[in-house]
Amino acid sequence: MTRNLNCNLLASAVCLGALFLSGCSTTKEEMLPTGDHTMLDLWNGADGEGGTSRQSAAARDTLRRPLTDDEHRKGTQDDRSYSRTQETEISQQFSRLPNPDMVMYLYPHLAGGNTPVPGYSTVFPFYSQTQYAMPGERTEAL
């Protein structure tokens, strides 16, 4: 009885697996037909029905519009911000990230058994290397 039940479960699992695998048997051309037009045809205004689309022509015209005065001015300002001048050489493009110091006081002690050493302070930076921020990265406190 249990052997028959195991065979039925196995057969149903095999059928279920075959059903799942048959769902993936579609080809790319069947799912996504290429159509008759190339990308250049679509850019030039050909739509899917063989005519020219007004929407694609309007979209192309908005992409090809001339720059406004504000956009042109902003573009030249952006170009100047990447140029090296005497003013920009003074300001640091890569600012240093904060590297706090740890101040440590050493109390008076004897070195080598009999040599007295007076107390003194020494400074250790937290990070061993100087780290720099990327251009435009915020370095001041929030």
Rank of each mutant, 00 (worst) to 15 (best):
Y120F: 10
Q93I: 04
H109R: 10
T122L: 09
R65Q: 12
T76N: 09
G112W: 03
L42I: 10
R54H: 09
Q77Y: 02
S95R: 10
T26E: 13
R73D: 15
T68G: 13
G75W: 04
G75R: 12
G119Q: 07
N99E: 11
S53T: 09
T76C: 05
P118W: 03
V103F: 01
D70N: 06
T88S: 15
N114D: 15
V103H: 03
C24Y: 07
S22P: 00
Y127F: 09
F124P: 00
Y127C: 05
Q55I: 09
T68H: 03
T115D: 11
R60F: 01
T76A: 09
G113E: 07
G119S: 07
T62P: 00
R64F: 00
V117G: 01
S95E: 15
P116I: 07
G75P: 00
A46L: 08
Y127E: 15
R60V: 06
P125T: 10
Q55N: 09
A58F: 02
Y120D: 08
D101S: 07
T27Q: 08
E87M: 03
H72Y: 02
L32A: 08
P108S: 14
E49A: 04
R64W: 01
A111K: 06
Y107K: 13
S22W: 07
L67F: 04
F94A: 10
V117A: 01
I90A: 14
S83A: 15
P33G: 08
F94N: 12
L106F: 04
N99I: 04
T115N: 11
